[in-house]
Design a protein around this nucleic acid. Structure first.
Lengths: 226, 226
DNA sequence: CGGTACGTTGAAAGGTGTCAACGCTTGTGG
DNA sequence: CCACAAGCGTTGACACCTTTCAACGTACCG
């Protein structure tokens, strides 16, 4: 296993300045130990229906959570970027699989130690509930997108979301390929590519490399998002 | 306001025999008081972004939770049937609006009394977390459906779900119209109608009235669900 | 008896998917 | 150092699934 196999095609992502340290609300209270771990590009972090032993927080890199149909169709439920917590389960198994999109470092804490902390401290239990409710809210927004928005609206929404979450200097450095974006937005990679080209032609955005995007007209995008 | 205005077009739904009493896990612990209330067909129960004062459980009837786009496009996130809890929020506002699909009776308990109970009893807090996590799991399944399944697969999934949840004697008595089904599955009402007609033509199901459906071949449906 | 809501079906349009070709970059191996 | 393969992204042509628009029938109700 060569260390350079599956090297990322984009530069590693630096944590943006506004990372909300969601772990702090938990670890701060009860002094839980968080260790670190690194995954190579495309490496599986955990599989669907696998026992949920850990809860994860992205330190650097990016992660996709997804479900598969038997014939290979894939729906990505969320992208996890630096600062994001993922893999948090109330039951004992993971609802979605998770993979590193690029070389990725995560902090992790044991789920059962979290359970113990929640059992001893109601404020921890409440924090866990609120985090899961936040995921639910995002999922419900995404259902609206998947069920009722057209391709341009979906792309506009995606760009604004990425802009908010990982734009540092006004440039978006996407860690994921067109297929990942398509599987997140319920589109094909070709439709994603065409929509992005169209937005570029309209002057709404500019490329410097396929994954380096500069938004030039956020108001137009917001109006397109429906 | 005539009592008969907006009378339901289908007969009221009886609670199925397998209703999981999700409230029991909460009220049983701390003796919360649950009162009852009745809503007429199409009446709003609460609106999007409205303060979440109560948590609800359907006693009889049916409820739709949904979000709207500014131009009127609607995505129904869930149907709530007898026994189901809805309107449970970790934050102080409702994420989705809710309306009665037919004349509906609900049990309700005050959210802040639930909050107090959760603050005093960790097992209540845990129960709330688990309920929200269950909703999240369903939402993630639905994202897969909305993003990656075709019309027949969506309808097959829907029918099997309704069969499980409200079939008593092998007959499904749908409380909702074709438009509701379409807005739940990310389709138009015409596509829903055509898919159902097609399944009838194939002998997979039979009608006795547009909302009375008998599944004649669940295995075929399960295979169609992908 | 007329109006409205609901459901079905047909015909046509359109948005997205499918299939294919091509260019570019990267990594590999001769 | 160059040839080659593989992955990624873009674009074109066409197919097809779903939507749109319309007509019609039925049930219910004022």
């Amino acid at each position: 296993m060569d260390m350079l196999t599956n090297a990322p095609t984009t530069t590693p992502i630096a944590a943006p300045n506004h990372v909300s340290d969601q772990f702090a609300g938990i670890t701060g209270h009860v002094g839980l130990v968080a260790s670190e771990f690194t995954y190579k590009k495309d490496e599986e972090i955990f599989g669907e229906d696998e026992p949920a032993e850990y809860v994860y927080q992205v330190t650097s890199g990016a992660v996709r959570s997804y479900r598969l149909l038997s014939d290979g169709r894939r729906q990505i439920g969320a992208f996890h970027l630096p600062g994001d917590v993922f893999g948090l389960e109330a039951s004992s198994v993971h609802r979605l699989a998770a993979e590193a999109i690029v070389d990725t470092t995560v902090r992790l804490i044991k789920r059962n130690s979290l359970e113990r902390a929640a059992g001893a401290d109601v404020s921890v239990a409440r924090k866990l509930w609120i985090m899961t409710a936040g995921e639910l809210k995002r999922a419900e927004n995404h259902m609206l997108l998947l069920g009722r928005k057209n391709a341009l609206e979906r792309i506009a929404n995606f760009l604004l979301d990425m802009d908010r979450r990982l734009s540092v200097t006004g440039m978006i450095a996407l860690p994921m390929c067109r297929r990942d974006i398509g599987d997140y937005l319920g589109l094909t990679l070709e439709t994603v590519s065409r929509a992005l080209s169209q937005l570029q032609a309209q002057g709404v955005l500019g490329f410097s490399g396929a994954r380096q995007i500069e938004l030039r007209n956020r108001d137009r995008l917001r109006k397109m998002d429906a």
